[in-house]
Amino acid sequence: MLVRVLGSAAGGGFPQWNCNCPNCDGLRRGSIRATARTQSSIAVSANGVDWLLVNASPDVLTQLRAAPALQPARAIRDSGIAAVLLMDAQIDHVTGLLMLRERSTPLPLMATPEVLSDLSDGLPLTRVLSHYCGVAPLPLALDAPQAVPGLPGVTVLALPLPSKPPPYSPFRERPRRGDNIGLLLANPQTGRRLFYAPGLGEVSDAVLATMRGCDVVLVDGTFWTEDEMIRMGLSRKAAAEMGHLPQSGAGGMIAQLDRLPSGVRKVLIHINNTNPILRDDAPERAELTAHGIEVAFDGMEIAF
């Protein structure tokens, strides 16, 4: 089974269009060693032809152009995308659905009932798409393995993660179980497993147990420090308030990943434009390397 990282940055991408933090400004000027990244999304395939798109970012068209395998060209109009699965209803994970409107058949859309409700009410993308290709909603059950239609050999298991729904949601201040998930993927041929969670605000005992049983974990790499955005004058919110666990500090992501067995491959994704780990030669990147932690990049492929 293969996972291709289509986008590895957090919302806004890297560089972010209106940001002049040291990272974004440095990348534009060519004064730092770093690589541009689009907003986070992955694609999963068991046969290299049919793919599950996990999150549809605003950058989806750019991402698809950079991934020829997702265009098998079997007909005058074609796509390797057999279905889309949404981890949450955040704008940077769902607005790319609008770019897939030229399909000739309804788009199979896997998401929890909570996410589907936000996309029919607070941000009515499914209603908008009904005037184009339409969607075929496939409610995603929690804590139960579920086959993906049109993708033989691909089974997913959605695990609820604590998080608030998006600001536009009617349930913003009344979070529901199912607003945000982690995704467990298993290869039925090898038994190997991968856990994907780009929005991970805390590592509970249940999440830790899941990660310990995996061969690969691809998890939240948004911020380096809890007060990163506050220190830079870019936000009044700390990482935890935004639903993310920073890498550094007591109980941070580095400390949590250090608790995993030595054979688990550890990769960070959904990296904010302010995070110093985006710089190839940053001491923070070297610290990750010392702990056996990789930083995802657009086009990265992970076989498991």
Rank of each mutant, 00 (worst) to 15 (best):
A34T: 15
R37V: 10
R37I: 05
Q39K: 10
S40D: 10
I42T: 10
I42L: 13
I42E: 01
A43S: 08
A43D: 02
V44K: 00
V44I: 15
S45M: 14
S45F: 13
A46R: 14
A46M: 12
N47A: 09
D50H: 10
D50K: 04
W51G: 10
L52G: 00
L52Q: 01
L52M: 00
L53P: 10
V54Y: 03
V54C: 05
N55P: 13
N55H: 14
P58Q: 05
D59T: 07
D59W: 08
D59L: 06
D59A: 00
T62D: 14
L64K: 00
R65W: 01
A66D: 14
A66L: 03
A67Y: 08
P68D: 10
P68E: 10
P68I: 08
L70V: 14
Q71D: 12
Q71E: 11
Q71I: 06
P72V: 12
A73S: 01
I76R: 15
I76W: 13
R77T: 14
R77N: 12
D78Q: 03
D78H: 08
G80C: 10
G80A: 03
I81A: 00
I81T: 06
I81N: 06
A82R: 15
A83F: 06
V84N: 01
L85M: 03
L85R: 09
M87T: 15
A89W: 01
Q90V: 07
I91A: 15
I91Y: 11
D92A: 12
H93L: 11
T95F: 06
G96D: 05
L98T: 13
L98E: 15
L100T: 14
R101C: 15
R101Q: 15
R101D: 15
E102L: 11
E102W: 07
T105C: 01
T105F: 06
P108T: 02
L109D: 11
M110A: 07
M110P: 01
M110Q: 03
T112L: 02
V115C: 10
V115N: 08
L116G: 09
L116D: 09
L119D: 02
L119G: 11
S120F: 05
S120A: 06
D121R: 05
G122E: 05
G122W: 02
G122R: 11
L125P: 01
L125K: 02
L125C: 08
S130F: 13
H131Y: 12
H131M: 11
C133G: 11
C133H: 00
G134H: 13
G134F: 13
V135D: 05
P137Y: 05
P137K: 04
P137V: 05
P139E: 02
L140A: 09
L142Q: 01
A144T: 14
P145A: 04
P145T: 09
A147C: 13
V148W: 11
V148K: 04
V148G: 02
P152G: 00
V154D: 03
T155N: 14
T155S: 14
V156A: 03
V156Q: 02
V156R: 05
L157Y: 04
P160M: 08
L161Y: 07
P162N: 07
P162I: 11
S163L: 04
S163G: 11
P165S: 13
P166R: 07
P167Q: 13
P167W: 07
P167N: 12
Y168T: 07
Y168Q: 07
S169F: 05
S169P: 06
P170W: 00
